[in-house]
Amino acid sequence: MGVEIRVEGLRKSFGRQVIWEDVTLTVPAGEISALLGPSGTGKSVFLKNLVGLLRPDRGHVYVGGGDVPRLREDQLYELRRRFGVLFQDGALFGSMNVFDNIAFPLREHTRKKETEIRRIVLEKMEMVGLTGAERKLPGEISGGMKKRAGLARALVLDPEIILADEPDSGLDPVRTAYLNQLFVDLNAELGATFLIVTHDIGTARVLPDNLGLLFRRGLVMFGPREMILSSTHPAVNQFFNARRQGPIGMAEEKDLARMEGEGQAPPAMPAPIPPQLMPSDGRPRPSMRRPGEWLARHRVTPPPGSFVDDQGRDWLTEWDRLVRSGQRPA
């Protein structure tokens, strides 16, 4: 099962460059969360702080009862075994075939026999759709296969937390859709906590249970998907609806007077909220919420056209029937 990650008052800088001042959030156990933000806002740096590869200037990262920045090296080593990390480019060893790349953590961190290692590796390869590619070298497989090989390697120690750093980077929209479905199916099967850093708005709008936005040296907002996608906060509204109008400019910072002027403009209507991706078997994951539940509880009217899928099915009114029949958004 997944483990909760609780971050309190995290600050990180490199010399005089402040990455973020005060990041506080809780990544719920067993759920899929995604963290987004413009380039240069420290998303990858945030992941490295979670696993202790970088230490913050101040603040806390609580994982399973331990405060990561304050753990001894031996404690940190043990904690990292609870994480599975999918790096942005797969980070495969070029001289090793796919099987040996995936087996590496088992050979490095366990005393399992080769017969057991082979069973585990083949099982994880089947989970990510790589059966038959055991002997191929990284240079002989596609970008999408490299991502899946990196994901299989992240899974071999049966982690409680899976971190993915821009897993859709360099993938076309079709492969990205397949990868998103794989994340949903793995979460349903394993119950692990997923935290995904991405730039892809399409992924952010349909995949996670929770969303967050880093911007201007801080965390603007983090919470349930419907809360974020219905928000009229200028930066959140602009980013998740991919609009030019708002405080986020081509450069990392905008002229202050221009930003203040934009802050006085009426917020744009959020785009329709799409249905959330369902597992392939059509059964909701334990952390999935009924469409419109958060909106109704907080008396927020959904944007027109929300929760209607590509087949014209209205998940706001037909959730129970569609779930009973095992159907899911296309």
Rank of each mutant, 00 (worst) to 15 (best):
V61A: 07
V63F: 03
D89N: 14
V45T: 15
R82G: 04
G90E: 01
D67Y: 08
L47G: 04
L54Q: 09
F87D: 08
G52Q: 02
S39P: 06
E31H: 10
A29W: 03
F14D: 10
P69K: 06
L54D: 10
R11G: 00
G37S: 01
F14H: 12
R72C: 00
V68S: 02
L71W: 00
D89I: 02
I19M: 14
G65K: 12
G65C: 13
W20L: 10
S44A: 11
R80L: 08
G65A: 11
V23P: 13
Q75G: 15
V68A: 06
V18C: 09
G30M: 05
R55A: 14
G15F: 12
G30E: 07
R72L: 05
E73R: 12
D74T: 10
G84S: 05
P56F: 11
T41Q: 05
H60V: 08
Y77T: 14
P38Y: 04
R16D: 13
D67R: 09
I19C: 15
T24H: 10
G9D: 14
A34V: 10
G66R: 14
S39L: 00
V61M: 13
R58D: 08
R16Y: 00
S44F: 07
L53D: 06
V63I: 13
V61I: 15
G30P: 08
K12M: 11
L54Y: 12
Y77R: 14
G40W: 07
V51T: 11
V45Y: 04
R16E: 12
R6G: 06
G90K: 00
R55W: 05
D57M: 05
N49L: 15
G84K: 01
F83K: 01
R6C: 12
E31V: 01
D57A: 13
V51I: 14
F83H: 03
A91M: 01
L10D: 11
K48M: 03
V68W: 06
L92A: 09
G40K: 09
T26C: 12
L76A: 04
R55T: 12
G65D: 11
D74M: 13
G65T: 07
G9P: 00
N49M: 15
R6F: 05
R6Q: 13
V27F: 02
A29K: 14
Y77P: 04
K43D: 01
G15P: 06
R55V: 13
G66P: 01
V68N: 03
D57Q: 13
F46A: 04
L92C: 04
R82P: 02
A91F: 08
I32M: 12
V18W: 03
E78I: 07
G42V: 01
I5W: 00
V68C: 01
G66S: 14
L79D: 08
K12D: 04
G15V: 14
L76T: 04
V85K: 00
V7M: 11
G64W: 10
G37K: 03
K48D: 03
E78K: 14
I5M: 13
E73C: 05
S44P: 07
F14K: 11
L79Q: 13
L86D: 02
V51H: 04
L71C: 02
E78L: 14
L50Q: 02
I32L: 13
L25Y: 11
E4N: 00
A34R: 01
R80M: 03
K43M: 06
E8S: 14
Y62D: 09
G30F: 05
G52S: 05
R80S: 07
G90C: 02
S33N: 05
R58T: 08
S44H: 00
S33M: 00
V61Q: 14
F83R: 01
